[in-house]
Measured scan of single mutants.
Amino acid sequence: VTLFVALYDYEARTEDDLSAHKGEKFQILNSSEGDWWEARSLTTGETGYIPSNYVAPV
């Protein structure tokens, strides 16, 4: 399991995006899409895309 933590708040801009709150942890499901990674929030269980530069490894 690849875990990352949000460094900043991010507000989803499309229905495919996933909002993130600073300190929230995510499981990365797919990081092969360049700057946008598919992730699952460990807080809400929701999945979507987050900007890779907004997260760091735990």
Results as ranks from 00 to 15, higher is better:
9 D>A: 07
53 N>M: 12
17 D>L: 08
33 E>Q: 14
18 L>T: 01
10 Y>N: 01
10 Y>P: 00
57 P>I: 08
19 S>Q: 08
28 I>F: 02
4 F>A: 09
28 I>M: 05
4 F>D: 00
31 S>Q: 14
57 P>C: 10
16 D>W: 15
57 P>M: 08
57 P>D: 04
47 T>W: 09
11 E>R: 08
43 T>R: 11
41 S>Q: 03
34 G>H: 10
3 L>G: 03
30 N>V: 08
24 E>L: 02
42 L>D: 05
28 I>W: 02
39 A>I: 06
16 D>A: 14
27 Q>Y: 14
21 H>Y: 14
55 V>K: 00
37 W>P: 00
29 L>M: 07
10 Y>V: 06
42 L>I: 09
7 L>G: 00
2 T>R: 12
51 P>S: 05
24 E>Y: 02
19 S>W: 05
8 Y>I: 06
45 G>F: 07
24 E>N: 02
34 G>T: 12
24 E>P: 01
42 L>R: 00
33 E>T: 12
37 W>K: 01
49 Y>I: 08
11 E>Q: 12
42 L>W: 07
24 E>F: 03
43 T>G: 06
5 V>Q: 07
28 I>V: 08
6 A>H: 01
54 Y>W: 08
56 A>Y: 09
47 T>Y: 08
56 A>D: 04
30 N>M: 07
24 E>T: 03
37 W>Y: 10
42 L>S: 03
16 D>R: 15
36 W>Q: 07
44 T>P: 00
13 R>Q: 14
56 A>N: 04
8 Y>R: 09
13 R>K: 11
3 L>F: 11
7 L>W: 03
45 G>Y: 05
4 F>C: 08
25 K>G: 04
43 T>L: 13
29 L>S: 05
8 Y>Q: 08
26 F>R: 00
34 G>P: 14
32 S>A: 11
2 T>K: 11
21 H>E: 08
6 A>I: 05
14 T>S: 14
39 A>R: 00
7 L>S: 02
50 I>C: 03
20 A>L: 15
18 L>H: 01
25 K>E: 09
10 Y>Q: 00
39 A>W: 04
10 Y>R: 04
27 Q>E: 14
4 F>E: 00
58 V>S: 07
48 G>E: 01
36 W>V: 09
3 L>Q: 07
27 Q>M: 13
6 A>T: 03
4 F>S: 01
48 G>I: 05
5 V>R: 00
51 P>M: 06
57 P>Q: 08
21 H>T: 13
1 V>C: 15
50 I>A: 01
7 L>M: 09
15 E>Y: 08
25 K>Y: 15
37 W>D: 03
48 G>Y: 05
30 N>E: 07
40 R>N: 05
7 L>Q: 04
39 A>S: 03
12 A>I: 03
53 N>Y: 13
1 V>R: 09
33 E>Y: 11
37 W>Q: 03
58 V>H: 07
50 I>D: 02
1 V>Y: 14
50 I>V: 05
2 T>L: 13
37 W>C: 05
22 K>D: 02
45 G>A: 04
9 D>S: 06
7 L>H: 02
15 E>A: 13
52 S>I: 07
19 S>T: 10
21 H>R: 14
3 L>E: 08
51 P>H: 10
52 S>G: 07
6 A>K: 00
54 Y>I: 15
20 A>K: 00
48 G>C: 07
19 S>F: 05
8 Y>N: 06
28 I>L: 06
28 I>C: 05
58 V>D: 09
49 Y>A: 04
24 E>R: 00
52 S>H: 08
7 L>A: 03
28 I>D: 01
8 Y>F: 11
9 D>N: 08
11 E>S: 10
33 E>A: 13
23 G>D: 05
25 K>V: 15
42 L>Q: 08
46 E>H: 11
36 W>S: 07
38 E>M: 15
4 F>N: 01
50 I>L: 12
18 L>K: 00
28 I>S: 01
2 T>G: 12
52 S>D: 02
36 W>Y: 14
19 S>L: 03
13 R>L: 10
42 L>F: 06
43 T>S: 12
23 G>R: 00
27 Q>L: 14
14 T>I: 05
14 T>F: 15
36 W>P: 05
43 T>Q: 09
52 S>A: 13
11 E>A: 10
13 R>C: 14
37 W>R: 00
12 A>V: 04
22 K>V: 13
43 T>Y: 08
48 G>K: 02
14 T>Q: 10
22 K>G: 03
10 Y>I: 11
9 D>W: 05
5 V>C: 07
38 E>V: 14
22 K>R: 11
54 Y>G: 08
56 A>C: 12
49 Y>E: 00
47 T>I: 14
50 I>S: 02
30 N>D: 12
11 E>L: 10
41 S>V: 02
51 P>K: 07
52 S>L: 05
15 E>V: 11
43 T>H: 11
39 A>F: 15
9 D>V: 04
43 T>A: 12
11 E>K: 10
58 V>P: 02
12 A>P: 11
1 V>W: 14
37 W>H: 03
53 N>F: 11
54 Y>S: 13
9 D>I: 03
53 N>A: 14
20 A>N: 01
47 T>L: 06
15 E>D: 12
39 A>V: 15
47 T>R: 10
46 E>S: 10
11 E>D: 09
42 L>H: 05
15 E>L: 10
40 R>L: 13
37 W>L: 10
55 V>E: 01
2 T>F: 11
55 V>Y: 03
8 Y>W: 13
2 T>W: 13
49 Y>P: 01
33 E>G: 14
34 G>V: 10
44 T>G: 02
56 A>R: 09
7 L>Y: 03
18 L>Q: 02
1 V>D: 12
29 L>G: 03
56 A>W: 09
15 E>H: 11
8 Y>A: 09
33 E>N: 15
34 G>D: 12
18 L>A: 01
20 A>Q: 01
49 Y>F: 12
4 F>K: 00
29 L>Y: 06
32 S>V: 11
13 R>W: 07
35 D>G: 11
21 H>W: 07
20 A>R: 00
41 S>N: 11
27 Q>V: 15
49 Y>T: 06
36 W>C: 12
6 A>L: 06
24 E>K: 00
55 V>L: 15
3 L>Y: 12
46 E>P: 00
34 G>N: 12
34 G>R: 12
10 Y>F: 15
9 D>L: 05
15 E>M: 10
46 E>G: 07
30 N>G: 09
28 I>E: 00
12 A>T: 04
14 T>K: 13
6 A>Q: 02
27 Q>K: 06
54 Y>F: 12
8 Y>E: 08
7 L>D: 00
34 G>Q: 12
27 Q>W: 15
19 S>H: 08
13 R>G: 08
25 K>P: 05
55 V>I: 13
57 P>F: 06
57 P>W: 05
45 G>W: 07
58 V>M: 11
38 E>C: 15
31 S>W: 13
37 W>E: 03
25 K>H: 13
44 T>Q: 02
18 L>N: 01
26 F>C: 02
21 H>N: 07
45 G>C: 10
14 T>V: 06
30 N>Q: 08
26 F>Q: 00
23 G>A: 01
16 D>E: 12
42 L>K: 03
32 S>W: 09
53 N>L: 10
41 S>W: 04
46 E>W: 07
1 V>L: 13
44 T>E: 03
36 W>N: 06
17 D>E: 15
56 A>L: 07
33 E>L: 14
15 E>F: 09
6 A>N: 00
45 G>L: 06
20 A>Y: 07
49 Y>K: 13
50 I>Y: 01
35 D>C: 13
54 Y>V: 15
12 A>F: 03
30 N>P: 04
52 S>P: 06
13 R>P: 08
55 V>D: 01
57 P>N: 04
53 N>H: 13
39 A>Q: 00
40 R>H: 07
19 S>V: 06
7 L>T: 04
46 E>T: 07
46 E>N: 12
45 G>Q: 05
34 G>M: 11
58 V>E: 09
57 P>E: 08
44 T>I: 01
46 E>Q: 14
3 L>S: 07
23 G>E: 03
44 T>K: 03
4 F>T: 03
21 H>M: 11
58 V>K: 01
58 V>F: 13
51 P>I: 03
20 A>G: 03
24 E>Q: 05
57 P>L: 09
23 G>T: 02
36 W>M: 14
49 Y>W: 15
36 W>K: 14
28 I>A: 01
